[in-house]
């Protein structure tokens, strides 16, 4: 038997209960899944099924309340604040459902932001990296614009550029095409596809099946439970089976 490298991200019977002023809201139940390096995963499911919650936990922005969450085989509960900050700075990045750009700040400075907190990328590389990330989403001519002067689609692309700038292993994208017309949506998906081809792990949430079609694997949530977890190969087979019927 050969020694297996542990998956990049793994959950075992993971649960999440939100607690607000003694009101408990259970959101995730018994979620077990493993994501390895280089995957392109789409998380789907009805609104309120817990997709964003799961993404936030996997992206080290939120904490689970039961079960296990392992990063490269290590229990994440053991990570202190500095260790979590370092993972957020270097290993993962997020494209939020609500963009979350800094107001009164230029496109350039928004994209630059993660580099300010990156422990190893030298100061001298910042400008070049920022410009490269802005170019990758086709916003070079808008670099000096303030975020308030951009269209929704442009804001989404700034958020993606910001997620790219540190060249992280995993990129989480929560409905990255949700606010875009189909042409811009296709451009965003193409960008994510290229990143995946370059070896980045992509995990995205979407409602749209065209968007999900880019993914090699679909995880479907319903009321906080995983109800489907299929690779595209299995999906193709399943689709063909239905057609045959």
């Amino acid at each position: 038997m050969t020694a297996m490298t542990p998956p990049l991200l793994e959950t075992r019977s993971l649960g999440k209960i939100y607690l607000n002023d003694d009101v408990e809201t259970p959101v995730l139940f018994d979620v077990s899944l493993a994501i390895t390096k280089g995957e392109f995963v789409a998380i789907m499911g009805p609104s309120g099924s817990g997709k964003s919650t799961l993404m936030h936990i996997l992206g080290f922005l939120d904490t689970h309340t039961s079960g296990d969450f392992l990063f490269q085989g290590e229990q994440t509960q053991a990570f202190d604040d500095d260790a979590l900050a370092r993972i957020r700075a270097t290993r993962v990045s997020f494209v939020f459902q609500a963009f979350n750009l800094l107001p009164r700040t230029t496109v350039f400075d928004n994209v630059l932001l993660p580099l300010l907190y990156h422990p190893t990328i030298p100061t001298s590389e910042r400008e070049a990296r920022t410009n490269k990330a802005i170019a990758a989403v086709g916003l070079t001519d808008r670099a000096t614009f303030f975020s308030s002067q951009l269209s929704g689609g442009q804001k989404q692309r700034v958020a993606i550029a910001r997620a790219l700038v540190t060249d992280p292993e995993v990129i989480f994208a929560d409905e990255p095409t949700g606010n875009l017309d189909s042409a811009s949506g296709a451009a965003v998906m193409e960008a994510l596809q290229k990143l995946n081809d370059a070896g980045h792990t992509i995990i995205l949430v979407t409602h749209e099946s065209e968007t999900a079609a880019h993914a090699k694997r679909i995880i479907r949530l319903h009321d906080g439970r995983v109800v489907e977890d299929t690779t595209s190969f299995k999906r193709r087979v399943a689709n063909e089976n239905t057609k045959l019927k």
């Binding site: 922005l61 604040d81 500095d82 900050a85 370092r86 957020r88 700075a89 270097t90 990045s93 997020f94 979350n100 800094l102 932001l113 993660p114 907190y117 990156h118 910001r162 540190t166």
Partner: peptide, 10 residues
């Protein structure tokens, strides 16, 4: 929140 999400330490 955003600064922390992109890696700011306490």
């Amino acid at each position: 929140g955003l600064r922390k999400a992109v890696g700011a330490r306490q």
